[in-house]
Write a protein that binds this DNA or RNA. Structure first.
Lengths: 143, 143
DNA sequence: AATAAACGTCAATATTGTTGACCTATATTG
DNA sequence: CAATATAGGTCAACAATATTGACGTTTATT
């Protein structure tokens, strides 16, 4: 690879690293005030995106072991943020949902990120929003 | 916030999460073969970007404690990937540099990411590369 | 000479993740 | 129906990774 191009790509890697770190910083700060961590946010986030999703689906989404999910999930249940109820179609399956309290916290956490992205894309324009999204999709694609 | 807009923003958050995770997956796999972790990659990466940077600079860049950096850094030194030598201008300061072996490993790890981004941007075009970068910069900016 | 800075290191502690093993409840299948 | 599979919960052992606190050495600065 050409030297100059390599340096351009290095800048891109640096940007990706710092952007992601900055992006999670403010939610992390809020989470800390509640005595919980980033995993908890992820759990809340994905339940919010698909109310009623099963434990197995959540495991697959987060790519962690059942045992790793267990502790934070139990905490969230005990703290009254999420509820877990047997599915009607199969009573072995537990459907996960946010409580009102959980919805409130999830909103508080994710709104920081949504607002930030909204402001940036409002300035950048719809077309550039689409560009950014397409690039992120391509990164995910050929996993 | 309008409901539809909120859903668009949710997709953006999802993309960010999965893109970053995918992005680090392949280097993580290589690291594992060497019996080291993502921190080690970060250390190698930032030393490669600025040969001769000091321990303090590295600490500030990675935002970890001196003690947290210590173990992985010592490992890298013992494994012969990096060297740490007193700076001429101030012999208290240690200047960190990659050895040849370290350069090779750093290239192996980061090339996965550089090549991926290069391929994507080759397809997307220079203008869209600039768009993506500008957006990532804005995310970092108002930290 | 006193103080400060850069770095190294040990210790105690907390957190978070992994794998393995095993249990219950419920579905599915031969 | 009996055997088996699936979804989920939980305990235990272990590894890793981070934090804070404390303290030592070397070298600069004041």
């Amino acid at each position: 690879m050409e030297k100059n191009r390599e340096e351009q790509l290095n800048e891109i890697l640096v940007l990706f690293y710092f952007a992601y770190r900055t992006f999670t910083k403010e939610p992390d700060r809020i989470l800390e005030q509640h005595g919980i961590q980033r995993v908890h946010h992820r759990i809340l986030f994905f339940i919010a995106r698909k109310p009623g999703l099963s434990v197995n689906e959540l495991l697959a989404t987060l790519e962690v072991s059942k045992q790793a999910l267990h502790a934070p999930m139990r905490q969230l249940i005990e703290m009254g943020y999420i509820k877990s109820e047997p599915a009607e179609y199969d009573r072995r399956v537990r459907e996960l949902r946010l409580t009102e309290k959980g919805e409130k916290l999830e909103k508080q956490l994710s709104n920081v990120q949504r607002k930030k992205m909204d402001a940036i894309f409002k300035e950048a324009g719809v077309k550039n929003e689409e560009v950014w999204k397409e690039i992120m999709k391509k990164i995910i694609e050929n996993e």
